[in-house]
Design a binder for these strands. Structure first.
Ligand SMILES: [Mn+2]
Ligand SMILES: [Mn+2]
Ligand SMILES: [Mn+2]
Ligand SMILES: [Mn+2]
Lengths: 219, 219
DNA sequence: CAATTTTGTTAGATAAATCTAACATTATAA
DNA sequence: TTATAATGTTAGATTTATCTAACAAAATTG
């Protein structure tokens, strides 16, 4: 069984993996907020325990076992976030920190009950997919709002970043998942987009914001 | 902030404390399932951090700060157990192991929401009192079923032991908190008691079982 | 009270997870 | 293509939580 520390490394490895499933030591060090020697020694441990493949001076790669374990921790994280929002009344900006701790609890029934009580949700409160019990993730290909054009109507479906600050910004504008946005115009100079939704007849969203909003095109 | 390990020591210290608030190193070692030298070194650490008073060859004593911290961890444990039973449909025999992990989560709002959702319960699923937010415990003086006499009617209110095995024994006899028991007779030889309750017209409970059943006398 | 048992301490070792300083390799760029 | 920068490794130290072996103090008992 992976330690809590190892579990956090596995999650980061899973999230950082590129198209070749590779992760560099330096990226991992940055992500985990530890020094490179710490990562170097940890990847040796993780390899010894069968979670990843490591060769000197090469990027590391999760084994299938490591990938599944990571996905199952992410499953616990996202189920917890959804439970906190749907069953306990938390805001989507409050749940990440709590889930970061709850994800390490070893009690399959606890998470199965959450899952059942919520009717087996497939996405978390930020629109990210919840891996299934086998650790499989259904990847959905949303469009970034930045790539949309004036005249289109879209539905806010997910976020590429779920920091508390960004979520609080969205709260301040009454933006939540499922909101239908009409794109009124797009400014060529700074790529900002003007949208209307609900009782907001005209709201300007900067490129920085639009990049982080994933949407479904209506039709 | 106490480490998870320190938190578990604080809980054990709280539970083992005698009338003079003292705990012996050997008791603590047994309870924590570690060696005496391990406890010896840990109590020095706990003293250094202000959780207890330690003098060579003397039993240790929690400081008020240590006592409060312990009570607040026990509060999280018992709130969790109650939440698992009342809001998530777990049996009273399934919740201790999960609560043992959840009690270490640092997220005051999480436990406050549980508390709110349950309407501020004062006892856990095994009848033990839930300390308040200040770490104060309301001690209730129940009677042991062993000390009751034939002819008396009592209500099962709490347990002195909540091991899974004992809880499963109680389940098998349909005994749960709140059950009204009529004491039909008491065997002088082995102190066993014959009771009737619900649709059980005559059930014999050994002294070993009666010792662990805490009851309220009806009038 | 002296012998024995129980309880507690010290010393020294180990494993996990981290660090800094120094060095090595690989990648980038002048 | 060599100098420089970026990335990665090694060595050695630290902290936390644990252990066993050896010893010391306190309590119990004959
Ligand atoms: Mn999250
Ligand atoms: Mn985590
Ligand atoms: Mn319990
Ligand atoms: Mn615990």
């Amino acid at each position: 069984m992976a330690s809590q520390t190892e579990e956090n490394y596995l999650k980061s490895l899973f999230n950082l993996a590129n198209d070749n499933n590779e992760v560099n030591i330096s990226e991992l060090a940055t992500q985990m907020q530890v020094s490179m020697p710490t990562v170097n020694s940890m990847v040796k441990t993780l390899q010894k325990n069968g979670w990843l493949i490591y060769e000197k001076y090469k990027p590391v790669t999760l084994t299938p076992k490591g990938k599944k374990e990571a996905a199952l921790i992410i499953r616990k994280h996202r189920l917890t976030e959804m439970f906190l929002v749907n069953k306990m009344g938390f805001g989507w900006e409050e749940v990440h920190e709590i889930a970061e701790q709850v994800e390490h609890i070893h009690a399959p029934k606890f998470f199965e009950r959450m899952d059942e009580m919520m009717g087996f949700p497939t996405i978390d409160p930020h629109g990210s997919p919840i891996p299934d019990k086998q650790g499989r993730i259904q990847e959905i290909n949303y469009l970034s709002l930045s790539d949309c054009k004036a005249g289109q109507t879209v539905i806010l479906a997910a976020l590429t970043n779920s920091s508390t600050e960004f979520l609080e910004f969205l709260n301040s504008r009454n933006l939540s998942l499922g909101t239908e946005l009409k794109i009124l115009s797009k400014e060529a100079y700074d790529q900002s987009i003007v949208v209307s939704y609900l009782d907001h007849s005209s709201e300007t969203l900067s490129e920085k914001v639009c990049d982080k909003l994933l949407v479904k095109l209506l039709e």
